[in-house]
Simulated assay, not measured.
Amino acid sequence: MMKPNLFAAQEREAKLTKLGDALQVLERHVDFAALANGVDTAAPRPGRERGGRPPFPTEVMVRILLIQQLFNLSDEQMEFQLLDRLSFQRFAGLRDSSQIPDRTTIWTFKERLIKAGASESVFEAVNRQLARHGYIARGGQMIDASIVQAPKQSLNKEEKSLVVDQNAMPADWSPPKRRQKDLDARWTKKHGKSYFGYKLSVNADKRCKLIRKIKISTASEHDTLHFEDLLDPANTSRDVYADKGYVNYKREERLAGQGYRMHIQRKGSKDKPISEAQQRRNRRIASPRARVEHVFAGMAQLGGKMLRSIGLARATLQLNWKAAAYNLRRLCYLKEAKFSAF
């Protein structure tokens, strides 16, 4: 028969730390109060004029949303795990609290950010923190895009004509049905396979593989439309790496006049294949450019290839928080590995 132990909780926490709690590594290197201040500046906390229970501190909610992105949890699963999991309670500062944010509280916090136009606030706050740690953008910039799939929509021919062609909603849809229909996501094809959802375009610095800029759009928008929006003038190098999807000779000439050194792979056609010199150039670019694929692989590990949300506004919020979570995890790796460049 096992004997009760008054110090069982403390002993379990100590053993958890000894075994290696990734969230405690985040605790060592990240200033969460600064992240919360950035969010509050962009989306002020609601007033108490109407009374009711005071909202949870913004820092607690920031920590919870980062856990959600790191472990790819739905709002419902996040509520359950906060009630059940010791490491999550400790990281969120809820170990001794009788109140735990439920799924509605988490959803309401996200809606507050969306309505305030503050979806990018945490990503920007994380990047300011990277700079304070000394991880400025350097070594050149890598630009690429990835499709992020959303829940597929079933539309008949008339509904598709209204939604896709006229950007309108059928009048006979009930309110519950409207809430479940994604009117922003679009279909696209890649390598002969169809995908429904959105597109995440990123700029990652070549030296540290940290995400510096992002752009979220519908999947049907071509990658090259956002190329210039993603350029980062703060990068210490003017080298820009991209794959064949970004070829645009006029733009390259214009950007070269601004001091950028363009390293974009060339593509041929059936009637006009690329020359041997262009093939050698493509091979030289391939290795440094491929480093951006490591970034997308890291995002995929966090569940960054699939959305649970509906609509461009919520997709923008989720992918900004996903990119912020990736950068924080990458920061911890660089700090713990004592990255040789710093």
Rank of each mutant, 00 (worst) to 15 (best):
K209H: 15
C208Q: 10
V240P: 06
Y249W: 10
T218M: 06
Q180I: 09
P170S: 06
Y198I: 00
H191Q: 12
D184L: 00
N235S: 05
W173P: 10
K189H: 15
R179Q: 11
M169W: 00
P175V: 11
T218P: 04
D182H: 07
C208I: 02
H222L: 06
E221W: 05
Y241R: 13
V202G: 01
A171S: 08
L183H: 06
K250S: 08
V202E: 04
V164F: 10
A219S: 05
A185T: 09
I211S: 00
N248A: 14
N248K: 12
D172N: 14
I216D: 04
E228M: 05
A234R: 12
D184M: 00
T224I: 15
K215F: 04
P233A: 11
D223W: 00
K193V: 15
R186L: 07
Y195M: 13
D239L: 01
A168H: 09
P176A: 06
Q180P: 11
P233Q: 06
S201F: 07
T188P: 11
A171E: 14
A242E: 07
L200T: 04
T236R: 15
L200Y: 02
Q166V: 02
K213F: 05
L225G: 03
S220I: 03
A185W: 09
A234H: 10
K250F: 03
A171T: 05
D182W: 06
R178Q: 14
W187C: 01
K189P: 09
L210Q: 04
L183P: 00
E221A: 11
D184A: 01
L231F: 10
R207G: 06
K206S: 04
K209L: 15
L231W: 09
L225W: 10
C208R: 09
S220H: 10
V163H: 02
N167W: 09
D223N: 02
T218A: 13
D232H: 05
A185S: 08
K181D: 01
N167L: 12
A219K: 02
A234E: 15
Y246F: 15
I211F: 02
V240R: 08
K206I: 00
Y249D: 12
G245S: 09
L183N: 03
K190V: 14
Y246H: 09
A171P: 01
K244P: 04
K206V: 01
V163I: 12
V163T: 06
V202K: 01
L231Y: 10
S237D: 11
T224F: 12
D229P: 00
A185M: 08
Y246Q: 07
Y195E: 10
I211V: 13
S237K: 02
D165A: 05
E221S: 13
R178P: 11
A204M: 07
V202H: 01
N167V: 06
